Simulated assay, not measured.
Amino acid sequence: MPLEATMICVDNSEAARNGDYLPTRFQAQSEAVSLIFNAKTQSNPESAVGLLSMAGTSPQVLNTPTTNFGAVLAGLHDTKIKGTVRLGTAISVAMLALKHRANKSQRQRVIVLMCSEIEPTHDSNDSEKELIKLAKKCKKNNVSVDFVAFGDATGSETRSTLEKFIEAVGGASSNEGNYLAVIPPGPGLLSDTLVTTPIVNSGAPGRGDGMEGVEDTGAGAGGSNGFEFGIDPATDPELAMALRMSMEEEQNRLDRERRQQEQNGERMETITEEGGSTSNDSKQPRVEDDKSDGKS
């Protein structure tokens, strides 16, 4: 992969709470961020990846481009789910962060993970006209843009706007490549399907118009060609190793979180049992108690 500075924009709007992508839309994005980070930095150690949240009062830069994976994970952990996505403003902020990258020889790329609908009534910068104008600005400033559309973003209206954005920024036929991956819900993980697209795997086939629609998630982690992660490790062993390490790290992280949740649950049960032997004054008020207090 080329030497790049990449800003990943995550959709932390209320739509990210939906569980149609396992385990939730936001957690699916977290796994995708891990996958993208490892694919970029391990294929080229001098590449860097930053993180930006798109919803809330305004988009927020969580990390400027870095090679520190722990910093990116910390940024994800601190992200709050709230509000509505502000796509146009987020891409503009990401462009500004890339402009001030430490290594000016790095190519600039923005990868947008989008699971909600575009709402121009909420932010005028999200109108189709303004987004196309922004796409042309990205092209002028040599900033490549990829979209991963899933959830509500797969709807015809939002998808059409994203397709026009990709076309305006140069499409897949440009030297830098600009792609749209449309990933509907399925039995597998979002990252399992994403790894088969040119956004992560530069050797994956893409359509000449820049629209990489991934409509079949049934292949799972093995991909449709029977190879692990959808690529032949013999043709690109470094990428295959990077992807394996990424998935192993993500699995270890999820295992740690499960153990932590189990330990927290055990502590809560212990506290509850101990609390049962004390007076009623030490108990947390129940909903029924609140109602009865209101009547007295």
Rank of each mutant, 00 (worst) to 15 (best):
E176G: 02
K139S: 13
K140I: 05
N103S: 13
A172W: 03
T121K: 14
Q108E: 15
Y179T: 01
G151S: 06
K137L: 10
N125K: 14
G170H: 07
S144P: 12
K136L: 10
A153P: 08
S156H: 12
G151C: 06
G206M: 11
A153R: 03
S173Q: 13
V145S: 01
A242L: 06
S173K: 15
M241S: 15
V143Y: 00
N201Q: 05
L239G: 00
H122D: 08
A242K: 01
P198C: 05
D192P: 02
V143L: 02
E228S: 08
R107M: 13
S124N: 12
I111L: 07
I199W: 02
S173H: 09
F147V: 08
P237E: 11
T161K: 03
S191K: 13
S174W: 00
S173P: 04
I199C: 05
G218E: 11
A102P: 02
G223R: 02
I183S: 01
V200M: 06
D232C: 08
P205V: 03
T121H: 14
S105K: 14
F227C: 05
D192M: 04
G203D: 01
D216T: 09
G188D: 11
E212R: 12
E157M: 08
A234T: 14
E128V: 04
Q108T: 15
K139A: 15
D126G: 01
Q106N: 15
T193Y: 01
P233H: 09
P187H: 13
G170E: 10
N141E: 15
K104T: 14
P233R: 11
L189A: 09
E176W: 05
V112H: 07
E130V: 04
P120Q: 06
P205E: 01
